[in-house]
Design a binder for these strands. Structure first.
Lengths: 219, 219
DNA sequence: TTGGTATGTTACAGGCACTTACTTAGTTAG
DNA sequence: CTAACTAAGTAAGTGCCTGTAACATACCAA
C-alpha cells in the first residue's frame, strides 16, 4: 500500500503542484474537496460532477476511475458532514461542562448554528432522499453522531435528577431543534414571522422540553 | 388512450376526447395535474417537464406556451399543496371542536399525517430552495395557511386561559411538529430509533409545549 | 372569407451523467 | 535495464433534459 500522496516529488520535472502532469496526484481527494465546496456553495441539488471536474482540472470521465457515480461522491461528503458535526458538538459540550444545563444549551445551539452556517450540507445530511443515506457507512456515521448526543443527554438527566429515559428526552429535544434549524434555513419563518428571534425561541423552549415528561402531568 | 382527466373541457369547445386533436383542450391544467402526480410519486427533484408532457400526450416544447419554465410549474404545485393543507387542517379543527385541546391534537396530528401521506409535496412546500417560494403568490398562500393556524391557537389559548402570546405558542409548537414530520419522512429516526412511536412522541410532548411558557418557570 | 392569435409541432443548441475505447504514467518481475 | 502489467487519465459518443426558434394548425372575429 503506497500512499499516493507520498509520490509528490518527481525529480527532473516540475516540482510544482499537479499542474501539467498527466497524473493528478490525489484526484480522489481533490474531487471530494471540490464536491464539499460546491455543495456548501450551491447545494447538493445544484452540484454537478462536471463542475467538480473543472475545479480539479480533469476531464468529466475521470471521476469514474474513483467513484461509482455522482451519488457516491455525495455520500462521502455527507459522511464528512457527520464527522464534523460530531466533533464540533463534543467540543461545545466539553467547553460548557458535561452534565450541566449550560451544556444542553450549548449542544442544541450548536445544532442550529451548524445548520445556519452550512445549510446545504445540513440538508444533505438529514433531508436528502434515503437512497444516499442507505449506505452502511453513512448509517454508521449517523448512529455514532447520535450516540454521542444521547450520552450527553444521559449525563444531564442524571445530574438533574430526571427519572425519564434520557433517550426519550433526547428524541423530543432533537425533534424540536431539528424543526427550528429546518424552518430557519428554509426561510419558512420569514414568510410568517420575519422578526422572530430564533435563538430566543430555542432558549425559551428548552426548559419545557428538558423537564421530566413523566412528572409533568402530560396526558 | 383517452385521458379521463381531460373529460372536463372548456365550455363552447369540443368536449370529445383529446385523442387525435391538434389542440389539447386544457393543456395547462393537464400539465399541472401531471406535475402534481409526478411530484407525489417521485419527488420534486426527480420531476421532469418531459415526463409531464409524455403523460399529457404532447411534445416537450408545449409547456412553454403556458409556463415560464419548469420552476413555474413546481410553484403552482406548491401553491395547491398549501390550499390542500389549509382545507384539511380547518376540517380537522372543526371536527374536533375549535378551542379545545382535542383540536390542538387534531391540528398538529394532521400536519404530521399530511407530511407522511405526501412526503414529496411536503418537502416541496417547506424544504425547497427559496427560489420557488419567493414568488408573491406562493408567499401569500403560505401566509394564509399559517394565519388560519394561529387563529386556531388563539382560540385554544383563550379557552385554556393561557396568558402567553398565541403566536409564540404557535411558533414553538409548529417548530416541534415540523421537526417531527421532517425527521419521520426523511427516515432519520429509523437510523437511530427504529421502533419510535412518532405519534406517541407528538401526543406526549404537546402538553409540554402548550402550557403557559411565561408561567412555567422557564429560564 | 380572411386574417390574427393561441396553441400546438419539429428541429436544434447546450448541459449533464455515464460508457467505451484508447493512451500514458508508474510499478514490478525477470 | 527492460518489458509487461496496472492504475489513472483522455476523447468521443449515447441518451436524456431544459429551453429556444421557426413553422403549422385550429379557432375566432370581423
Amino acid at each position: 500500500m503506497t500512499d499516493p500522496r507520498a509520490a509528490k516529488s518527481r525529480p527532473g520535472l516540475q516540482t510544482d503542484a499537479a499542474k501539467g502532469r498527466y497524473h493528478h496526484g490525489d484526484l480522489r481527494e481533490a474531487l471530494i474537496t471540490a464536491a464539499m465546496e460546491l455543495v456548501l456553495e450551491r447545494g447538493a441539488e445544484n452540484f454537478t460532477l462536471a463542475d467538480a471536474c473543472r475545479r480539479a482540472g480533469v476531464s468529466t470521465a475521470a471521476p469514474y476511475k474513483h467513484f461509482r457515480d455522482r451519488d457516491e461522491v455525495l455520500e462521502i461528503v455527507l459522511q464528512r458532514g457527520f464527522d464534523l458535526m460530531t466533533e464540533e458538538a463534543d467540543a461545545a459540550v466539553a467547553q460548557a461542562g458535561p452534565g450541566t444545563f449550560a451544556a444542553m444549551i450549548a449542544l442544541n445551539k450548536h445544532y442550529v448554528l451548524f445548520a445556519i452556517k452550512r445549510p446545504s450540507l445540513f440538508k444533505l445530511m438529514f433531508g436528502q432522499s434515503p437512497e444516499l443515506k442507505q449506505a452502511d457507512l453513512v448509517l454508521e456515521q449517523g448512529q455514532d453522531c447520535f450516540g454521542r448526543v444521547v450520552k450527553h443527554f444521559a449525563d444531564y438527566c442524571e445530574a438533574a435528577g430526571i427519572a425519564e429515559d434520557p433517550m426519550q428526552v433526547c428524541l423530543r429535544t432533537w425533534t424540536f431543534v431539528h424543526g427550528l434549524a429546518s424552518l430557519k434555513i428554509d426561510e419558512d419563518y420569514d414568510a410568517v414571522a420575519p422578526d422572530l428571534d430564533h435563538m430566543a425561541l430555542l432558549t425559551d423552549t428548552l426548559p419545557l422540553l428538558l423537564q421530566d415528561g413523566m412528572a409533568s402531568g402530560a396526558r
